[in-house]
Amino acid sequence: MIRKIKFASIPVRDQDRALAFYVDKLGFTLITDQPMGPSQRWIEVRPPRGDTGFALFTPPGQEERIGKFTGISVECDDVQKTYEELLAVGVEFREPPKAEPWGTFVVMRDSEGNELVLSGGR
């Protein structure tokens, strides 16, 4: 029986730069950083209060996925406050937070140009 999502993969061009972004700017925890072949490492990071992590890895032949909308949404307690905190440390956003009937959200870009949605908790 499936219990949970272990990780989602985020394609990256520069693993060192991506690791620094997720750990230093977003405050994620490094779970593993292991050699994986001659040109890449298997890197997993996780939000400090989350169960699901991100693998910062690009399968060979999938480089065109880098810098796209990921379809991944991460949750925070206060979108406006988190937006301001992340903006202050250099995180890029598509536009300021937007309030919708279903909740407030903002689209951020990681160090590789990948877009993730930041939304409020329930």
Rank of each mutant, 00 (worst) to 15 (best):
Y22F: 09
S73A: 15
G67M: 13
I10S: 09
S111A: 15
G71R: 07
P38T: 11
T32L: 09
F28A: 05
A55T: 08
A88E: 10
F54A: 11
P35Q: 01
W42F: 15
R17C: 00
G113W: 05
Y22C: 08
V12N: 07
I66N: 07
L86D: 02
R65F: 14
G37I: 05
K4A: 13
K25L: 14
L19K: 12
M108K: 07
P35N: 00
T82V: 12
V117K: 08
G113R: 02
T82C: 06
F69S: 12
F7H: 15
V79F: 05
G71M: 00
L116I: 15
Q80R: 09
L56C: 08
A8P: 00
P38E: 13
S9K: 12
D77R: 13
T82S: 07
L116W: 06
T29V: 12
G50Y: 10
G90N: 04
R94H: 06
P97V: 04
L56N: 01
Q80L: 11
V74W: 08
R65I: 02
S39K: 12
F21E: 00
T58H: 04
T29S: 12
G90S: 07
G113Y: 01
F69W: 14
D77I: 10
T52I: 08
V12L: 08
R49H: 09
G61R: 08
E112N: 06
V79K: 06
P35H: 03
E112V: 06
G103F: 09
W42Q: 06
T104K: 11
G53A: 01
V23M: 09
V74F: 13
L30Y: 07
V89G: 10
D16L: 12
I5K: 00
I66D: 03
A55M: 15
Q15M: 05
V107A: 03
D16M: 09
L26G: 03
L87G: 01
P96I: 10
A8T: 14
D78A: 09
P60D: 13
L19M: 05
P11V: 09
Y22H: 09
V117C: 11
E85R: 12
I31E: 13
N114R: 01
M36H: 14
P35E: 02
E75H: 11
L87R: 11
K25N: 06
V45I: 13
D14S: 02
P96H: 06
R17K: 15
T32A: 14
E64L: 08
G37W: 03
G61W: 07
I43Q: 03
R49S: 13
E112K: 02
D24G: 09
G71N: 06
I43R: 00
D33V: 07
